[in-house]
């Protein structure tokens, strides 16, 4: 890979010889196509969200957001993210340590398995937990006998969210830690540090921006997940509705203004995520793994 710093921000300054660049009209056409396509497919939907959210005025907007059902949906979404993101961070760090710092048999296979949730439909991610914990599920009878509720309750929502956000942190850290090698840790160990100290004082500072990048993407998905959570939630208003599910309910009740009000919070979260992500790429491009997007 080329130096990511150069790669990320320096636009190529083409020499103006006609043979290695497009003619001016061709350039203009390509620019127009790009702006029209992105304008229609990305910008317009975003504008619609905020436009519809405020369509009935600021009063209706704040009323929709302070509604008790909305507030409980916001609480639940924050709670689910607060449980699932840290768990996936611990897993991501642990998996990256094992995979990047050591050579062992089956490493490539393990890396593939970690990516598995990205190739499974969110609905199927929810379905597998229904098959496991549902009334007709493999563990359904046992759970019922012991009074443990997982499905159509918070634990199920957390599990489904962990499933769909599983690879984010690991897949950011693995290439980064592989790139950085073991030299720093070996130096720390030879100077008398123990394993934990090497991790806390050497590895973690080395990967902190990459880690933050992974957490950012993981959190955005955790708070916005719809399909998987929809299957396991049971849609109990005020109890098991996350923000995206609440958006759906309001929308289906023809309460578009309220649906878009809640949606505008999620769109705001998406915009903040994009801004932070771009800042991280600009400032610390070299300290974030070469993989972009996700």
């Amino acid at each position: 890979m080329a130096d990511p710093e150069i790669k990320s921000y320096a636009p190529h300054h083409e020499s103006q010889s006609a043979a290695v660049t497009e003619s001016r009209p061709a350039k203009a056409v390509l620019m127009i196509v790009t702006f029209a396509f992105l304008g229609i497919f990305l910008l317009l939907p975003l504008i619609v969200v905020f436009n519809e959210a405020f369509a009935k005025g600021l009063g209706a907007y704040t009323e929709a957001l302070t509604n008790p059902d909305t507030r409980s949906a916001i609480h639940l979404t924050l709670l689910v993210a607060a449980i699932s993101v840290p768990l996936n961070v611990v897993f991501g760090i642990s998996a990256a340590w094992a995979i990047a710092k050591f050579e062992f048999k089956g490493k490539a296979f393990l890396t593939t398995l970690i990516d598995l949730p990205f190739s499974v439909s969110p609905v199927i991610s929810g379905l597998v937990y229904v098959l496991l914990f549902g009334a007709q599920g493999l563990l359904g009878a046992w759970l019922k006998a012991h009074g443990i509720v997982i499905l159509f309750a918070v634990p199920g929502i957390v599990l489904a969210t962990i499933f769909v956000t599983f690879p984010f942190v690991a897949r950011e850290l693995i290439p980064l830690m592989q790139e950085q090698g073991n030299g720093d840790e070996e130096a720390a160990l030879s100077l008398g540090a123990n394993g934990w100290q090497a991790f806390w004082y050497v590895t973690l500072p080395n990967v902190k921006w990459g880690l933050l990048y992974g957490v950012l993407l993981c959190n955005a998905r955790a708070m916005g997940e719809f399909g998987a959570v929809s299957v396991v939630s049971g849609h109990i208003r005020g109890l098991t509705n996350t923000m995206p599910l609440h958006v759906e309910i309001l929308y289906n009740e023809y309460n578009a203004a309220a649906a878009f009000a809640v949606a505008s919070l999620l769109a705001g979260l998406a915009l903040v995520t994009l801004v932070l992500k771009t800042l991280l790429e600009m400032r610390y491009g070299a300290e974030i793994a070469a993989t972009r997007g996700h």
């Binding site: 636009p11 620019m31 790009t34 702006f35 992105l38 975003l46 923000m243 949606a263 992500k277």
Partner: peptide
């Protein structure tokens, strides 16, 4: 990649919107 124009960074960042925007929000919009 090839053209330099004002706001290029913003346009570049916008491309990731579908990754960041919850699917239900995209759906109703």
């Amino acid at each position: 990649v090839r053209y330099n124009f004002p706001g290029r960074r913003i346009v570049d960042a916008m491309v990731d919107l579908p990754f960041a925007l919850p699917t239900a929000v995209a759906g109703i919009a």
